[in-house]
Amino acid sequence: MNAVQEESILDVQSIKKYFPIKKGFLQKTIGYVKAVDDVKFHIRPGETFGLVGESGCGKTTLGRCILRAIEPSSGSVLFRDRQGNLRDVLKMDTKDLRAIRRDMQLIFQDPYSSLNPRMTVLSIIAEPLVCHGLLSGDQLKDRVKELMELVGLNSRHLERYPHAFSGGQRQRIGIARALATEPKFIVCDEAVSALDVSVQAQIINLLQDLQERLDLSYLFISHDLGVIQHISNRVGVMYVGQMVETASSKDLFASPKHPYTEALLSAKPIPDPRRKSNRIILSGDVANPANPPTGCYFHPRCPYAADVCRKDAPVMKQVGDGHYAACHFAGELKLRGAGSLSC
């Protein structure tokens, strides 16, 4: 076991998810969509790892592969169980996977479609406890009341249905459901993107408070750079299924080392009407994951691309303390951070 694994609650190694492209009467496979392509990262206990990138870059697919909600094509997901052992989630049988899922939960993006409209709040929050056979009867009801109060809901509303709640309240119900089995790790899949800005702030503050009180670790998936910067300890940037840069939130926003990250940061809104944004507009289109370009996937749009970028795929290399970038010229380019992309 290496040093990274010793300090990690989650260690993702070379995860790939290729969706087959089928054609013809016999549905012959003629290619693959490389939704997640050889991604590696780790998360420490009590840490929030932010995952950011354009829509369609593979963030949600990666999160679901980690939870094994969909089966990855290859790779490994090492998760630390309650006994302190790192175990590969992808090699578990049905019984072991069911047990480990008590510790790995998911908060969905849409608080409207993620709650069954035919179930009461009591039934929704109690469902994980019932499925795992943890509680029943009065103990079950008391636990649901405790969870509702934990996320800031009135426990007298147990028998109400989801339609009686606002979007922010519904997301609190989803958070209570995720916390029911006392997990150690939660994937927050765009958990605040469907909410109003003021409600987003309330939910983010709630998640941070719960993390501190319950010693939770988060994989926080979002396309909102402001949210990612606020909530994350470390950040990973994805482009066309690949991780192109990882660093602490402070380092990544102040001094990006990959040209795509620089362009992404330039799109971050500036909360000051007196300052003008110096937006970087990339040429061309996002690469097709079913037919990506040779070499670096970003080179057709990169203003710094050279011949080596068109021929050879870059490898992730260390360019600072805990800072890694998959760029041939990482550490050599003078890229602008979020604070310098305005005037």
Rank of each mutant, 00 (worst) to 15 (best):
A330C: 02
A69G: 09
G320T: 05
H258Y: 05
P271M: 14
H42W: 15
N291Y: 10
P289L: 03
D307A: 15
V151N: 07
H42A: 11
C343G: 14
C188H: 11
P162G: 13
K59I: 00
D321N: 14
L140T: 07
V12P: 02
R98L: 11
M1S: 15
H132N: 08
H299P: 03
G241D: 08
V77P: 12
L134P: 00
K334I: 12
K141D: 03
G284F: 15
H230F: 15
F108P: 02
Q5A: 15
K184R: 15
E146K: 13
H230S: 13
F108C: 05
A290K: 08
K276I: 14
D189R: 14
L51G: 09
V197E: 02
S193K: 00
P292D: 01
P183T: 01
H157A: 13
D321H: 14
N278G: 09
E245L: 06
N233V: 00
L147E: 04
L265G: 04
R177T: 05
Q229I: 04
L135G: 09
L335V: 01
G56F: 07
F79S: 01
C188R: 08
D272G: 01
A178H: 10
Q105G: 14
G167W: 10
L62C: 03
H328R: 01
G58P: 01
K16H: 15
M243N: 08
R234C: 00
V227T: 12
I228H: 13
L252M: 02
A326Q: 08
H157W: 11
R234V: 00
L10N: 06
D103I: 02
R156S: 12
I15W: 09
L122V: 01
L216F: 05
T294Y: 02
A290Y: 10
L214F: 08
N205W: 12
S155Y: 07
Y260L: 03
E190L: 08
R213G: 01
V315W: 13
G339K: 13
E71I: 06
L179F: 12
G322N: 00
E7M: 06
F49D: 00
L78T: 04
T60G: 04
P273C: 12
K145R: 15
V240T: 08
C327E: 10
L86H: 10
I100D: 05
T29A: 12
E190W: 12
C131K: 10
E262C: 08
R213N: 11
R274T: 14
R301M: 05
D37M: 03
R102A: 14
S283D: 14
K250I: 03
D81M: 02
I100T: 12
K28I: 04
I175Q: 11
G174N: 09
I280P: 13
N288S: 06
E262M: 03
P273F: 11
K141W: 01
K95C: 10
L10E: 02
D88R: 07
L134N: 03
I204Q: 05
I175L: 09
S8L: 00
I280T: 09
V33P: 00
